[in-house]
Design a protein around this nucleic acid. Sequence first.
DNA 1: GCACGACCTGCGGGATCCCGCAATCGAAGC
DNA 2: GCTTCGATTGCGGGATCCCGCAGGTCGTGC
Lengths: 240, 240
Amino acid sequence: MNILIAEDDPFHRAFLAGTVREALPGCEAVLEAEGGEQAVKLARDNRIDGVVMDIQMPEVSGIAAASKIWETRPDMRILFWSNYSDEAYVRGVSRIVPKEAVYGYVLKTASAQRLGLAMMGIFLEDQCIIDREVRGVQQRAMDLHEGLSNTEFEVLTDIALGLTDKAIAARRGISTRSVQSRLKQLYEKLGIDQQPHDDEGPVFNSRARAVALALSRGLLNLESMSLGEAKLRRWLEKGQ
Amino acid sequence: MNILIAEDDPFHRAFLAGTVREALPGCEAVLEAEGGEQAVKLARDNRIDGVVMDIQMPEVSGIAAASKIWETRPDMRILFWSNYSDEAYVRGVSRIVPKEAVYGYVLKTASAQRLGLAMMGIFLEDQCIIDREVRGVQQRAMDLHEGLSNTEFEVLTDIALGLTDKAIAARRGISTRSVQSRLKQLYEKLGIDQQPHDDEGPVFNSRARAVALALSRGLLNLESMSLGEAKLRRWLEKGQ
DNA sequence: GCACGACCTGCGGGATCCCGCAATCGAAGC
DNA sequence: GCTTCGATTGCGGGATCCCGCAGGTCGTGC
């Protein structure tokens, strides 16, 4: 069995390699990549049976790299190992995972033992293993009343990128009035109307406040935004 | 000599401890803190000669902890060790460092040797040692035409928190028209007017676009925003 | 004293945003 | 077939935002 490790931090990379050797004694080779691009290349050029992937990496993130790998090898087993359980990450992962793929999501704060158990479960037993805390986020995101729907999530990313209502409407193929309806729902779910008011009218600009709250709650993060920025740029060029 | 290490990641913490022992053979004790709060407590209760501080830590960040420590020991030598050279961090540090303090700013991507040299320079020779890359950011921030003035930076943080013009005016003690003037300058410096236009008017909402650009350029980051959120909350309560 | 630049401020208007009301459409369920 | 529910859309208005223009203030340097 050959395992690929993708992790930019050298200390974490060494720790991962050690844990892999310990949890999977039958493992023949452990390949190491320092970034997403290298991970894709190594996964393409070698016979790999599983990947341990850090999500936050400069240049090409772990999610982007996993997406690339799954394009050609939709049955690849990938264990995501991340510092955070941001909803942006959890959504990002579950959006790209193919139906036939086995995957896992373990937090870096977990013990070495828990990480080792997850490796055994995924790479030996083909189980999907998701940390409890991450599962909680996943659950909340699915709940229709608590979490955001896909359409609400779309307008959220769009206003976070700084688009106008009209631009969002053109991009998503709906009317500006619909955009505003979605925004209103978004504001309600984020609880913007119940934010403090001053004597002199509202303290908060709904649009900007929504972005601030989404960031602080992990609905969005910098990576999801730069990813959205890239998509937006492509759409703009296509339009011209 | 006693050195305090504040770093939440155990691998990095162990690496720091090793580097301290190597670079400073005369060092008697190396104390370790896992977070900002513990760092402040350890610095208060022990005879500490210098601190190596990670900036990004959950709960109490390294900048907040350093600020606390410098309140009672303004001559403390502190070496900041961070993953990023975000302008938000650089500004945050240089805003709180007392005139008589010796400090340093080294990136985590630097080699162990460079880190060791910085430790020797700061703790043995009382030199200020700032990585070249960080220095570049500091320089740009000082340049009046390239970087943002303090007033522009203030309105930037305010709109990022989601405040309305009126609320910003009340908070900063100026008229709403002044807020809008500052915003216009901010938009110009961020280059929002030269963003792409569609046939059907502007694609971007200036206010939201400014926040998006500031985040992607590191002028703001999540920590500076949650810090601003805390300040805002205090101000709101005072007003009521 | 005087010119200069940086900042603050009031006025006014045009564009955008926020939202209540109501009609329409499509999909799911009985 | 009918109902129900969610999503979309138009209309209209009030609030906010963006910005050009012009006048005022304050500190610096000659």
